[in-house]
């Protein structure tokens, strides 16, 4: 299928891009096209105007360390996120989540900014960035701001981005004594995923000092399992606490259902993945 007609803009500056997006209600920014192009070709989403942003200097792929913070630019592809040394070292959950996105061709095109920008609850990186307490760097016509990831996802396909705002990158403080894990279940790499979980815990002498858990395809938005996180704090990681955490993380969920997974089955998978993530971290610690 082919997309409906649209007007294509190629602004020269980020500011120009923001202004275009602000002044055209039906305009949408295009980065790698991983999500947008298929939606347009399926004709389930047809923006009247497209604003290209991938070429803008501020967006260019790049990962750098600024003190105790990792900054990831918006156009960094999934493949780059997967293989980047800083990310593998300090934010392995993000690297693992990127590696689990679709197939190699898509990982070569899709970008971290685009993965987050739609507010789609089925994107891997959203759960990982939730677990990492990332900040979304947004640039609008009135300047830059940082949006805590916890405040970013508002509803299904709805984010905190204001009209005209573009994601330019992400900031993540390097977590200390952190153990991280991403796990996903999908019937095929390019299919709508069944469930995934991203975990980031800070451990000290086997005791959990802090925990952040991101859940995917669990609700209308990417969400955190805050109740379970609270429970886990100051607990020894063991079979009992793991079971309890998984139970608390998933008991009130109402995940979407489809031909591949009923809401109940998705809930079960989230529970299982939760346990497996924590068990795998427990194994890591033991070694």
């Amino acid at each position: 299928m082919r997309p409906r007609p649209f007007l294509l803009h190629r602004p020269n500056t980020l500011k120009e891009a923001s202004e275009l997006l602000y002044s055209h209600e039906d305009a949408k920014p295009l980065a790698g096209g991983q999500s947008l192009i298929p939606m347009m070709k399926l004709r389930i989403y047809s923006p009247e105007e497209i604003v290209m942003i991938g070429h803008l200097p501020e967006m260019q792929p790049g990962v750098k360390q600024e003190g105790s913070t990792i900054v990831i630019n918006s156009m960094t592809t999934h493949d780059m996120v997967h293989h980047n040394e800083l990310i593998s070292e300090y934010l392995p959950v993000l690297s693992e989540a990127a590696a689990a996105i679709a197939d190699q061709q898509i990982r070569n095109r899709g970008t971290i900014g685009g993965n987050i920008a739609h507010g789609d609850p089925s994107t891997n990186l959203s759960a990982a960035l939730l677990a990492l307490d990332a900040k979304v760097l947004a640039s609008g016509k009135d300047g830059q701001r940082e949006i805590p990831i916890d405040e970013f996802f508002l509803d299904l396909f709805t984010t905190a981005l204001e009209p005209g705002e573009i994601i330019t990158g992400f900031k993540v403080d390097i977590p200390k004594n952190s153990r991280q894990k991403f796990m996903k279940i999908t019937r095929s790499d390019t299919a709508f995923p069944l469930a995934f979980v991203a975990v980031n815990i800070q451990l000290s002498d086997g005791v959990v000092k802090d925990a952040r858990i991101g859940l995917g395809v669990a609700a209308p938005t990417p969400i955190r399992a805050t109740e379970a996180e609270e429970y886990l704090k100051n607990k020894q990681l063991n079979q009992e606490t793991i079971l309890k955490t998984a139970e608390m993380a998933t008991k009130d969920l109402e995940p979407p259902g489809d031909v591949h997974a009923s809401p109940e089955y998705r809930k079960n998978l989230l529970n299982v993945l939760m346990k497996r993530c924590l068990n795998s971290l427990l194994e890591e610690v033991k070694q």
Partner: peptide
């Protein structure tokens, strides 16, 4: 139609 087919996960909630 197309949304009923592709949007199966969300359409009833919406």
């Amino acid at each position: 139609g197309r949304l009923a087919s592709i949007g199966q996960r969300y359409i009833s909630k919406v």
